[in-house]
């Protein structure tokens, strides 16, 4: 049994088939990239997994559990975290509290305990903070700890989104175009971090990406999509040479 599995997943908006009977599997500890031209349905697959959209048909399994009908907030509790293409950070909060929200799935305290800030809450906060600091160190975010998101440059925000996802200690992380809007140097950093994610934290990575250099550097396997359908699947080199993929990109 695969670690994560999508079975003939479909998403239709009226007549438009954004995702059309897509099946794939992710093995534990793997870095799998999804590539494809704009509008191929890459982000839609992520939105299906994180339950922002409800699939028209098909099923999703994670750790042998059917998660197709789980409410969206439970997806995170199961250990699937994600980042967003266009950055969805909590704009008017500090970096620290953004990262602490990432810890939400680990909080166990009750409302009344929090109102009184009982010792259990205090102890929990310290644990959360320690975990957050580890992520901050991992991603070199120390200078930004107390800054408000709204004042930070795009590149830093991108890293903070990754950090927030990591704070939830995910088993599987979905990265939606982690390099979009980053310069060459920042993309380089990102590729190191993505590899470290797997080697140091043991996180499985599923990633949507346009930048082929990043894809080549980090992925074990690549899936190419077009018009919601799988064109090819295999190693980065295989997929890039696949005639259908070449045709989809070059329009031949």
């Amino acid at each position: 049994m695969s670690y994560f599995r999508a079975e003939s997943l479909s998403l239709h908006f009226g007549g438009l088939k954004a995702v059309d009977a897509v099946s794939f599997a992710v093995e534990k500890g793997e870095i799998l990239s999804i590539i494809g031209p704009n509008g191929a349905g890459k982000s839609s697959i992520f939105n299906l997994i994180s339950r922002i959209y409800r699939p028209t048909s098909g099923r999703i399994f994670f750790e042998d559990q059917d998660i197709t009908e789980q409410p969206p907030y439970d997806i995170a509790r199961l250990g699937i975290a994600r980042t967003f293409q266009n950055i969805e950070l909590f704009e008017n909060a500090s970096v620290l509290s953004n990262l602490l929200v990432g810890r939400h799935r680990h909080s166990t305290t009750q409302l009344w305990q929090e109102l009184l800030f009982l010792p259990s809450v205090r102890a929990g906060e310290k644990v959360h903070r320690r975990r957050v600091e580890q992520v901050i160190e991992f991603l070199d975010l120390e200078p930004y700890r107390d800054k408000l998101i709204s004042g930070l440059p795009y590149g830093v925000r991108k890293v903070i989104e990754l950090a927030r996802a990591l704070c939830s200690e995910p088993k599987l992380i979905l990265l939606d175009e982690p390099s979009s809007g980053l310069n060459v140097e920042e993309t380089g950093d990102m590729s190191f971090w993505i590899r470290d994610l797997r080697s140091e934290l043991g996180v499985t990575v599923l990633m949507v990406e346009h930048d082929m250099s990043l894809v080549n550097r980090v992925s074990d396997r690549v899936i190419a999509l077009n018009y919601g359908r799988v064109l090819a699947m295999g190693s980065p080199a295989e997929v890039q040479q696949h005639p259908d993929v070449v045709a989809a990109y070059l329009g031949a």
């Binding site: 969206p72 509790r77 950070l89 909590f90 008017n92 929200v101 939400h104 929090e114 929990g124």
Partner: peptide, 22 residues
Amino acid sequence: SPTGRAFVAIRDSETAARSMGV
């Protein structure tokens, strides 16, 4: 504490809050 941060998260982005398990 976590509840207050969840409130602020909802204010700024419901989608992101949900994807973080709120």
